[in-house]
Write a protein that binds this DNA or RNA. Structure first.
Length: 195
DNA sequence: ACTTCCTGCCCGTTACATCA
DNA sequence: TTGATGTAACGGGCAGGAAG
Protein backbone atom coordinates (compact mmCIF):
# COMPACT_ATOMS: atom_id res chain seq x y z
CA UNK A 1 0.00 0.00 0.00
CA UNK A 2 1.42 3.43 -0.87
CA UNK A 3 1.21 6.66 1.10
CA UNK A 4 -1.85 7.93 -0.71
CA UNK A 5 -3.74 4.68 -0.13
CA UNK A 6 -2.74 4.76 3.52
CA UNK A 7 -4.08 8.28 3.92
CA UNK A 8 -7.28 7.48 2.08
CA UNK A 9 -7.81 4.41 4.23
CA UNK A 10 -7.29 6.43 7.37
CA UNK A 11 -9.71 9.16 6.37
CA UNK A 12 -12.29 6.59 5.32
CA UNK A 13 -12.23 5.20 8.81
CA UNK A 14 -13.30 8.58 10.13
CA UNK A 15 -15.68 9.48 7.34
CA UNK A 16 -17.74 6.51 6.22
CA UNK A 17 -18.12 6.07 2.52
CA UNK A 18 -21.07 8.05 1.27
CA UNK A 19 -23.87 5.87 0.03
CA UNK A 20 -24.83 6.14 -3.57
CA UNK A 21 -26.59 9.44 -4.04
CA UNK A 22 -30.33 9.14 -4.18
CA UNK A 23 -32.57 11.88 -5.41
CA UNK A 24 -34.07 13.68 -2.48
CA UNK A 25 -37.44 15.25 -2.38
CA UNK A 26 -37.26 18.99 -2.33
CA UNK A 27 -38.66 20.62 0.76
CA UNK A 28 -41.32 23.23 0.32
CA UNK A 29 -40.87 26.75 1.52
CA UNK A 30 -42.02 27.53 5.00
CA UNK A 31 -45.73 28.21 4.65
CA UNK A 32 -46.71 26.74 7.97
CA UNK A 33 -48.46 23.49 8.63
CA UNK A 34 -49.61 21.16 11.31
CA UNK A 35 -47.54 18.48 12.98
CA UNK A 36 -44.37 20.51 12.53
CA UNK A 37 -42.70 23.62 13.75
CA UNK A 38 -43.48 25.40 10.51
CA UNK A 39 -46.34 27.40 11.92
CA UNK A 40 -44.03 30.26 12.78
CA UNK A 41 -41.07 31.96 11.24
CA UNK A 42 -37.69 30.48 11.86
CA UNK A 43 -36.10 32.28 14.75
CA UNK A 44 -32.77 32.20 16.42
CA UNK A 45 -32.79 30.84 19.90
CA UNK A 46 -32.06 33.40 22.58
CA UNK A 47 -28.63 33.46 24.16
CA UNK A 48 -30.13 32.20 27.42
CA UNK A 49 -31.71 29.25 25.65
CA UNK A 50 -28.49 28.45 23.82
CA UNK A 51 -26.49 28.72 27.04
CA UNK A 52 -28.80 26.31 28.81
CA UNK A 53 -28.72 23.88 25.90
CA UNK A 54 -24.93 24.10 25.73
CA UNK A 55 -24.72 23.42 29.44
CA UNK A 56 -26.90 20.37 29.04
CA UNK A 57 -24.90 19.23 26.01
CA UNK A 58 -21.74 19.59 28.04
CA UNK A 59 -23.12 17.07 30.51
CA UNK A 60 -24.28 14.57 27.93
CA UNK A 61 -24.58 14.58 24.19
CA UNK A 62 -27.85 12.71 24.10
CA UNK A 63 -31.02 13.51 25.92
CA UNK A 64 -33.48 11.12 27.44
CA UNK A 65 -37.08 11.84 26.57
CA UNK A 66 -37.97 12.98 30.05
CA UNK A 67 -35.04 15.35 30.31
CA UNK A 68 -35.74 16.69 26.86
CA UNK A 69 -39.31 17.53 27.81
CA UNK A 70 -38.23 19.14 31.05
CA UNK A 71 -35.58 21.21 29.32
CA UNK A 72 -38.04 22.23 26.64
CA UNK A 73 -40.60 23.43 29.14
CA UNK A 74 -37.96 25.25 31.17
CA UNK A 75 -36.78 27.09 28.09
CA UNK A 76 -40.19 27.62 26.55
CA UNK A 77 -39.33 25.53 23.54
CA UNK A 78 -41.01 22.68 21.75
CA UNK A 79 -39.43 19.32 22.71
CA UNK A 80 -38.81 18.77 19.02
CA UNK A 81 -36.81 21.99 18.91
CA UNK A 82 -34.65 20.67 21.72
CA UNK A 83 -34.20 17.36 19.92
CA UNK A 84 -33.30 19.13 16.69
CA UNK A 85 -30.90 21.43 18.48
CA UNK A 86 -29.14 18.44 20.05
CA UNK A 87 -28.94 16.65 16.75
CA UNK A 88 -27.43 19.67 15.03
CA UNK A 89 -25.10 20.20 17.96
CA UNK A 90 -23.88 16.61 17.76
CA UNK A 91 -23.21 17.14 14.07
CA UNK A 92 -21.19 20.29 14.77
CA UNK A 93 -19.29 18.53 17.54
CA UNK A 94 -18.50 15.61 15.28
CA UNK A 95 -17.28 17.89 12.50
CA UNK A 96 -15.11 19.76 14.95
CA UNK A 97 -13.58 16.52 16.17
CA UNK A 98 -12.95 15.45 12.61
CA UNK A 99 -11.16 18.69 11.88
CA UNK A 100 -9.04 18.32 15.00
CA UNK A 101 -8.14 14.78 14.03
CA UNK A 102 -7.31 15.87 10.55
CA UNK A 103 -5.02 18.64 11.78
CA UNK A 104 -3.21 16.20 14.04
CA UNK A 105 -2.85 13.72 11.23
CA UNK A 106 -1.47 16.39 8.94
CA UNK A 107 0.97 17.49 11.61
CA UNK A 108 2.23 13.94 12.05
CA UNK A 109 2.50 13.55 8.32
CA UNK A 110 4.54 16.74 7.95
CA UNK A 111 6.87 15.56 10.70
CA UNK A 112 7.39 12.23 8.99
CA UNK A 113 8.14 13.94 5.68
CA UNK A 114 10.68 16.18 7.37
CA UNK A 115 12.35 13.23 9.05
CA UNK A 116 12.43 11.37 5.77
CA UNK A 117 14.19 14.29 4.10
CA UNK A 118 16.64 14.54 6.95
CA UNK A 119 17.51 10.87 6.69
CA UNK A 120 17.87 11.04 2.94
CA UNK A 121 20.15 14.00 3.28
CA UNK A 122 22.22 12.03 5.76
CA UNK A 123 22.45 9.13 3.33
CA UNK A 124 23.72 11.50 0.65
CA UNK A 125 26.39 12.84 2.95
CA UNK A 126 27.49 9.36 3.96
CA UNK A 127 27.60 8.30 0.37
CA UNK A 128 29.81 11.26 -0.45
CA UNK A 129 32.11 10.36 2.41
CA UNK A 130 32.29 6.83 1.10
CA UNK A 131 33.31 8.06 -2.33
CA UNK A 132 36.02 10.20 -0.81
CA UNK A 133 37.27 7.23 1.18
CA UNK A 134 37.26 5.09 -1.93
CA UNK A 135 39.33 7.65 -3.78
CA UNK A 136 41.73 7.93 -0.90
CA UNK A 137 42.18 4.16 -0.74
CA UNK A 138 42.69 4.03 -4.45
CA UNK A 139 45.37 6.68 -4.27
CA UNK A 140 47.15 4.80 -1.49
CA UNK A 141 46.86 1.58 -3.44
CA UNK A 142 48.42 3.19 -6.49
CA UNK A 143 51.37 4.28 -4.38
CA UNK A 144 51.82 0.79 -2.89
CA UNK A 145 51.47 -0.87 -6.28
CA UNK A 146 54.08 1.49 -7.61
CA UNK A 147 51.87 2.87 -10.30
CA UNK A 148 49.73 -0.20 -11.08
CA UNK A 149 46.65 1.90 -11.15
CA UNK A 150 44.06 -0.75 -12.06
CA UNK A 151 44.82 -3.36 -9.50
CA UNK A 152 42.01 -5.93 -9.75
CA UNK A 153 42.26 -6.59 -6.04
CA UNK A 154 41.71 -2.96 -5.07
CA UNK A 155 38.89 -2.61 -7.46
CA UNK A 156 37.11 -5.72 -6.28
CA UNK A 157 37.55 -4.73 -2.68
CA UNK A 158 35.95 -1.39 -3.37
CA UNK A 159 33.03 -2.96 -5.13
CA UNK A 160 32.49 -5.34 -2.26
CA UNK A 161 32.54 -2.49 0.24
CA UNK A 162 30.19 -0.45 -1.81
CA UNK A 163 27.73 -3.28 -2.16
CA UNK A 164 27.93 -4.10 1.51
CA UNK A 165 27.21 -0.51 2.45
CA UNK A 166 24.52 0.17 -0.05
CA UNK A 167 22.89 -3.17 0.53
CA UNK A 168 21.34 -1.84 3.72
CA UNK A 169 19.54 0.80 1.75
CA UNK A 170 18.53 -1.62 -1.01
CA UNK A 171 17.86 0.61 -3.98
CA UNK A 172 17.59 3.72 -1.88
CA UNK A 173 17.79 5.92 -4.94
CA UNK A 174 14.08 5.37 -5.27
CA UNK A 175 13.18 7.06 -2.02
CA UNK A 176 15.03 10.31 -2.35
CA UNK A 177 13.31 13.44 -1.21
CA UNK A 178 12.18 14.79 -4.48
CA UNK A 179 8.80 16.47 -4.42
CA UNK A 180 6.42 14.10 -6.08
CA UNK A 181 3.32 14.95 -8.00
CA UNK A 182 0.66 16.38 -5.72
CA UNK A 183 2.74 15.84 -2.63
CA UNK A 184 5.21 18.21 -1.08
CA UNK A 185 6.85 18.97 2.19
CA UNK A 186 4.41 21.63 3.22
CA UNK A 187 1.69 19.03 3.25
CA UNK A 188 -0.87 21.17 1.53
CA UNK A 189 -1.30 19.43 -1.81
CA UNK A 190 -2.21 16.13 -0.29
CA UNK A 191 -4.67 17.93 1.95
CA UNK A 192 -6.48 19.08 -1.15
CA UNK A 193 -7.15 15.49 -2.04
CA UNK A 194 -9.71 15.37 0.72
CA UNK A 195 -11.28 18.77 0.33
C1' DA B 1 -39.76 -16.81 14.37
C1' DC B 2 -42.08 -13.24 11.70
C1' DT B 3 -44.15 -8.99 10.77
C1' DT B 4 -45.70 -4.42 11.88
C1' DC B 5 -45.49 -0.23 14.25
C1' DC B 6 -43.16 3.23 16.82
C1' DT B 7 -39.33 5.95 18.23
C1' DG B 8 -35.05 8.10 17.92
C1' DC B 9 -30.86 8.88 15.52
C1' DC B 10 -28.00 10.23 11.57
C1' DC B 11 -27.17 12.34 7.18
C1' DG B 12 -27.86 15.42 3.64
C1' DT B 13 -30.44 19.22 2.39
C1' DT B 14 -33.26 23.35 2.54
C1' DA B 15 -34.74 27.76 4.21
C1' DC B 16 -34.02 31.59 6.74
C1' DA B 17 -31.28 35.18 9.49
C1' DT B 18 -27.37 37.89 9.71
C1' DC B 19 -23.39 40.27 8.29
C1' DA B 20 -19.74 42.26 5.39
C1' DT C 1 -28.42 44.45 -3.01
C1' DT C 2 -25.93 40.44 -2.87
C1' DG C 3 -23.07 36.58 -1.74
C1' DA C 4 -21.18 34.02 2.20
C1' DT C 5 -21.91 31.94 6.45
C1' DG C 6 -24.27 29.93 10.42
C1' DT C 7 -27.95 27.35 12.01
C1' DA C 8 -32.94 25.87 12.76
C1' DA C 9 -35.69 22.66 10.69
C1' DC C 10 -36.99 19.03 7.54
C1' DG C 11 -37.28 14.41 4.84
C1' DG C 12 -35.83 9.97 4.36
C1' DG C 13 -33.33 5.85 5.64
C1' DC C 14 -32.07 2.81 9.19
C1' DA C 15 -31.84 0.24 13.62
C1' DG C 16 -33.71 -1.39 17.83
C1' DG C 17 -37.44 -2.56 20.77
C1' DA C 18 -42.30 -3.63 21.87
C1' DA C 19 -46.53 -5.78 20.63
C1' DG C 20 -49.45 -8.83 18.08
Amino acid sequence: MNRLEDAVALISQIVPQQAEAKPRRRRKKNKGGENSLSGFKKRKLTQEQVDALELSFGNEHKLESEKKNRLASELGLDPRQVAVWFQNRRTRWKNKKLEEGFRKLRSVHDGVVLEKCRLESEVMKLKEKLREAENEIQRLGERVDGGASNSPISSLTMEAMDTAFLGEFGGYEDVFCIPENGYNIHGMEWVNLFM
